[in-house]
Structure formats: structure tokens, C-alpha cells
């Protein structure tokens, strides 16, 4: 059976397969998350949730780039108090682990939102310390080892579930931030969030996104994300979730070989909500062909010297 080859466990979580819905894609409602889970995801991550409601930015919030997508949604979310009800409902309809993505404007806020998410039933918390387009949160925290450790430490103390820290690629050396997160108590890392980017229209001579700058996702960023995972895996033992431009099984396998234990898929979901199942089948075929008994056996193999 598939689950024998693809089943993984990390940071105390058991997943039937290593493909996970990335945060920000669908992810508001339990019904949307259920649909993605039915498409074969081994776990799902919600939209990033904060302490209070946020409407996000006006459109355009999405612009197509050469080999990917730029977005600056602006962290729209209903706030954890309202969203707790959705988490509770999601837990009744989902048969895969539910990760709640959390952001805040201070370490205390991160900790408080995370604690409420866990209280409502989150199986794990993923800290968004890497959103590149909202001021005073996200990457503005995740780019500073000092702020990052404070946030991770406080949140870790507030929750009794696995704490995953989603890192930003918009730094000189991602391993410095990885180390800060690990030392502050992160159980796993997700690498990476979107790359800070922009688009300009030549006719109007204006930036297209209403927020001017946003985050680039999709195939364009895959080689960057892969390098980030490789760099972290080279130095640390921590479980890593690879994220960035994964579209097919070959992309996923590259991330495993670089050192990821699981992968998150986002942009590719728009075109095919069965993308998780398709990728899992491909990974399975690859493992059989290469005579491996489990996806766990290929994690980090690209580091062999």
C-alpha cells in the first residue's frame, strides 16, 4: 500500500503521505480544506491567522510573473476568536492533521494566537515569520534572529503541540535564522515562504500590485527554495518541510534529496486539486524504481559526499 512507502512521522506528527497544503492557498473554510485533503494532501495548513480581523489589501493582489505568481494579499483573516470556530468544525470533517498558520505583531501576540489555535484543535502550529508584504510582522520578525527567537520561545512555551517555523528566503544566510529558531525550541522548519518581488506595467508606468511589493511563488523560486533546504539540512538535524514551486513528483523528490522530510504545495493547487495524489503516485513509482522501501530513506541523500 501507498502508506507504507509514503507514511512519515516528524516532530511527533504522523502523516499518511509527505505532501501538505501550503498556507495561504484556499484555507479559510473547513470545506475548502476538506476538498484539498480529498485531493490527497497528507496534512493541510490554514491561512495565516492573527489576533484580530484584517481585510487585507485592495486588488490587484495577484499578478502573474514569468514562471510563477506574485501576491500581496495582506494577510486577510477573520482573527483567531472567530476562526477558532472554523478550526473546531474543520477538526470534525478532516481526517488529516490540521496545521494552523499564525502571525502576530509581537511575541506575546504570536503566543496568544497559537495557544488559542491549539485550544480549538490545531494539530500543529506553523509560525508565519516570513510574509514579505505586511509591515511589523512576518518577515520583519523572521529576518531578525533576535525577534525570531523571542517569538519562537514564547510560542513554544504557550503550546503543547508541534511548533513549525516557516522561514523567509529574503535573508543573506538562512541558516542563521534556522539556528535561532531551533535554539528557541522549533520542532520543525518550513523552508521557504515567498521571495519578495514586484511587477511594473510599462503602459501606465505603475507597479501593478496595490501594495507595490509582494511575494513570488511557483516554479520560478524552486531552485532558491531547494538551496535553502539544502543549506539548513547540511548544518542541522531538524525536520524540514520543503516549500517553493513544487509542481510535480520530481520537484518533490528533489526537496527530499536536499533534506526535506515533507513538502508543502501551494501555487500548483489552483490548476489541479488532485495534485497531491498525482505527486504521491509519482514519488511512489520513483521509490519502487530506485528500490527504496520508504520516502524516509531518501531524505538528504544529495548530501552524500
Amino acid at each position: 500500500m501507498e502508506s507504507n512507502l509514503l507514511g512519515i512521522s516528524f516532530a511527533g506528527l504522523s502523516l499518511e503521505n509527505p505532501t501538505i497544503l501550503a498556507s495561504g492557498i484556499l484555507g479559510y473554510t473547513a470545506e475548502s480544506l476538506k476538498r484539498v485533503a480529498k485531493g490527497g494532501a497528507g496534512a493541510v495548513v490554514t491561512k495565516s491567522i492573527g489576533a484580530s480581523p484584517r481585510a487585507g489589501y485592495p486588488n490587484p493582489t495577484v499578478v502573474q510573473a514569468e514562471a510563477g505568481l506574485l501576491n500581496a494579499m495582506g494577510l486577510p483573516n477573520p482573527g483567531i476568536d472567530v476562526y477558532s470556530e472554523e478550526i473546531k468544525y474543520a477538526k470534525t470533517v478532516l481526517r488529516v492533521p490540521l496545521f494552523v498558520s499564525v502571525f502576530g505583531y509581537s511575541a506575546d501576540e504570536y503566543a496568544s494566537v497559537a495557544s488559542k489555535a491549539v485550544e480549538a484543535g490545531a494539530d500543529a502550529v506553523e509560525l508565519n515569520v516570513s510574509c514579505p508584504h505586511v509591515k511589523q510582522t512576518g518577515a520583519e520578525i523572521g529576518q531578525s534572529p533576535k525577534f525570531l527567537s523571542e517569538v519562537v520561545e514564547k510560542t513554544k512555551a504557550a503550546v503543547n503541540k508541534p511548533l513549525i517555523v516557516k522561514l523567509s528566503p529574503n535573508v543573506a544566510d538562512i541558516t542563521v535564522l534556522a539556528q535561532a529558531a531551533i535554539e528557541a525550541g522549533a520542532d520543525a522548519l518550513t523552508a521557504v515562504n515567498t521571495l519578495k518581488a514586484m511587477a511594473i506595467d510599462t503602459e501606465t508606468m505603475m507597479p501593478i500590485l496595490s501594495n507595490v511589493k509582494g511575494g513570488l511563488s511557483g516554479p520560478a523560486i524552486k531552485p532558491v527554495a531547494l538551496r535553502c533546504v539544502f543549506d539548513i539540512a547540511e548544518q542541522f538535524e531538524v525536520p524540514i518541510i520543503g516549500c517553493g514551486g513544487i509542481t510535480d513528483w520530481r520537484d518533490a523528490v528533489e526537496f527530499f534529496l536536499a533534506g526535506a522530510s515533507a513538502v508543502e504545495i501551494g501555487t500548483a493547487v489552483a490548476d489541479d486539486d488532485e495534485v497531491f495524489r498525482t505527486i504521491c503516485r509519482g514519488i511512489e513509482t520513483y521509490l519502487r524504481k530506485k528500490h527504496y522501501g520508504s520516502v524516509k530513506e531518501i531524505v538528504g541523500l544529495a548530501h552524500r559526499k
Binding site: 495561504g24 492557498i25 473554510t29 486588488n59 501576491n71
Partner: peptide, 13 residues
């Protein structure tokens, strides 16, 4: 928002 099925703003069920 996105118009292409990614952001989840327009879901019904």
C-alpha cells in the same frame, strides 16, 4: 481576489 482558484475568497461550500 485572484480569479484563478488560489486565494479562497470566493468559496461557497
Amino acid at each position: 481576489r485572484c480569479g484563478i482558484g488560489l486565494c479562497g475568497s470566493c468559496v461557497i461550500g
